[in-house]
């Protein structure tokens, strides 16, 4: 096959569009230049000639996915839906998701749900301390795993027979599971549903976006670290959000600055050579929600599945996180102090 340099990138609109449609069942793996079995061109393009799926794709109905109204119905009791995104891995998406959920749940009147769409590397169960739980299936659907009275979690981790099993899945299978998380899980009446995502701009992100479009997403919180290697990928994520029509609630900078516990000298481990998250937020015209310093105790709390807020409530990192949570609430149109009352 001759390589082509011109426009190797599929238009985003195309990818977004075709994702909203119903997928026919294929009998063989799609060929390299498969237009997507749900696209308008399915079964008609050059790549389709000789493909065993050609007849199936060409005759499949091209309407919207019939499961989307079911998802919308299922999520009708959820007031706010927040995505946590980042182009880069390991910047603290799951940590931030956990913190945000704990913060919302610290008000006993709120009911909070967390959905972990990172299928290949789920971290939420461990961070919440519910790694060994399994899902209960009832007649009305799957029951989320409850961390506390008012905090429920759903993740692929709960379905693995062994904790360390690898989930070696290609895109369509991952999309199927995400759909089930939305369609079959008994989310019930909830104030907040926080959706944690894997790094990148691929299948999981397209699915979450298209499945939730009808029911309405409040927006996405982007997480970054201060160095350019990370900002580079987050810029791509902003581009993705804009093209996909996902409102951006704001940008959080994590791991910004580290205070030596011995001499209290502050070092910038991940140097913001290009201005860090603050500058990126300014350049791209999105709200900057705050900077959270690097505190080894946050990582430790996550490792042991304990709430950082409960254990180290008076640390500077904790204070910064509270501010970020209040800012998120403000962007959502609520009063920050109502969600997380000020200490004094």
């Amino acid at each position: 096959m001759a390589p082509s340099l011109e426009e190797p990138i599929q238009p985003v609109d195309d990818a977004l569009d075709s994702h909203l449609r119903k997928q026919p069942a294929l009998k063989a793996a799609p060929p390299e230049h498969c237009p997507g079995p749900e696209s308008e061109q399915a079964g008609k393009q050059d790549a389709c000639a000789g493909c065993p799926n050609q007849a199936i794709c060409a005759s499949a109905p091209k309407g919207p996915d019939p499961d989307i109204p079911i998802i919308t119905e299922r999520l009708s009791g959820v007031k706010h839906k927040i995505l946590v995104l980042s182009g880069k891995g390991g910047v603290g998406k799951s940590t931030f998701t956990t913190m945000l959920a704990h913060a919302f749940a610290s008000n006993a009147e709120n009911v909070v749900g967390v959905m972990d769409t990172d299928i290949c590397g789920p971290s939420i169960p461990k961070m919440m301390g519910v790694e060994t739980e399994t899902i209960h299936v009832s007649s009305t659907g799957w029951e989320p795993v409850w961390v506390s009275e008012n905090l429920g979690v759903m993740s692929v981790q709960f379905m693995l027979p062994n904790r360390d099993d690898a989930v070696i899945w290609r895109g369509p299978k991952k999309n199927g599971l995400i759909k089930q998380f939305l369609k079959d899980v008994e989310w019930g009446e909830m104030d907040y549903l926080v959706v944690d995502t894997p790094p990148g701009t691929s299948d999981e992100h397209l699915s979450v976006n298209s499945f939730l479009k009808e029911s309405g997403v409040d927006g996405a919180v982007l997480v970054t670290t201060p160095q350019e290697v990370s900002l580079l990928d987050v810029r791509k994520e902003i581009d993705f959000c804009r093209k996909a029509g996902i409102p951006i609630l704001g940008l959080v900078e994590n791991m910004s600055g580290f205070v030596c516990p011995k001499c209290t000298h502050q070092s910038e481990i991940f140097r913001p050579t290009t201005g860090g998250g603050r500058q990126l937020a300014k350049d791209t015209n999105i709200p900057f929600l705050g900077a959270v310093p690097l505190d080894p105790r946050i990582g430790m709390s996550c490792d042991y599945g304990e709430s950082f807020f409960d254990n180290f409530g008076d640390s500077p990192a904790c204070e910064a996180l509270r501010d970020v949570v209040r800012n998120v609430a403000e962007v959502l149109g609520m009063k920050g102090e109502d969600v997380l009352p000020l200490d004094d």
Binding site: I9, R235, K236, E237, D239, F240
Partner: peptide
């Protein structure tokens, strides 16, 4: 191969597979 360094690459599985190959 990207025209602009901030461009998002929004690809589903088969497209990624083709590129890797």
């Amino acid at each position: 191969l990207l025209a602009n360094r901030g461009d998002a690459v929004v690809w589903r599985g088969p497209k990624k597979t083709a590129m890797v190959r």
